[in-house]
Design a protein around this nucleic acid. Structure first.
Lengths: 122, 122
DNA sequence: CGTCAGTGACTACACCTGTAGTTTAATCGA
DNA sequence: TCGATTAAACTACAGGTGTAGTCACTGACG
């Protein structure tokens, strides 16, 4: 069971998944594109992530370099799994069906998914 | 924007979506199949849901009857939307692709989804 | 009529989250 | 060398969440 990552923490992780290692200041700069957070806020989030061993720290003189310890893919698999389990009884079909019925799927989406499934069957 | 429903509250909602109206005790009994919560806990959750106007209350003598005010379908659409937006940039394909790659889709799942999509295109 | 079981209302409380401010220690530039 | 800068560490604090406990009332039962 991978440690829980909160929404705010997730935004920080996205930055680190894109590029790492980074210093706290660098992370804050990049996160600033999305969120209007102070440097301190980002540092707090990094500390919490480090405390949970979701990011690793490496000393670089007076500062730290932060890197993800959890892979984005593994994380996404975990949360998706959890999501589908909790809300759709663990079955992906009802989820897709639901999105379809709610008109959340474009013709484009449908085409892409079909293609993907065709690939999978090989 | 529908009011936020927490995880614990969601378990209570599932019971009410299955059958309503119910008294607090009845809800607690049914929830007990899933969660090991005391009656008081369930009552607290019902109060919070009522305060958020996610369930409605109807007086029945000395007790209340609780019913959902939000439809399950609408709720699922909302959270699914939100989930896909936050984690997969709003595209459903990457989510399905991800679950597929992570071997979370059985051959059976694939067949069902294909069938569903075929239906959709009509 | 008095007691008790059931019910909603109110209170509790620790932990998580979002969002920082403050303190302290190290470093770099003049 | 000394002050200005910068970074990490520690502290803060309100609101949400999980998980109840307690209180006060009321109707049913003996």
């Amino acid at each position: 069971m991978t440690e829980r990552i909160s929404d705010a923490e997730h935004a920080v992780m996205e930055v680190l998944w894109k590029r790492a290692p980074l210093t706290a200041t660098e992370v804050a700069d990049r996160v600033a594109d999305e969120k209007d957070w102070s440097l301190q806020t980002v540092k707090t989030l990094l500390s919490r992530l480090a405390a949970k061993a979701v990011v690793g720290t490496e000393r670089d003189g007076r500062r730290f370099l932060y890197s993800p310890l959890v892979e984005r893919d593994a994380y996404l698999t975990g949360v998706s799994r959890n999501f589908v389990d909790r809300l759709f009884g663990g079955k992906v079909m009802p989820l897709v069906a639901h999105l379809a019925e709610a008109d959340e799927l474009s013709a484009e989406d449908i085409r892409e998914i079909e293609e993907l499934l065709r690939e999978l069957k090989k």
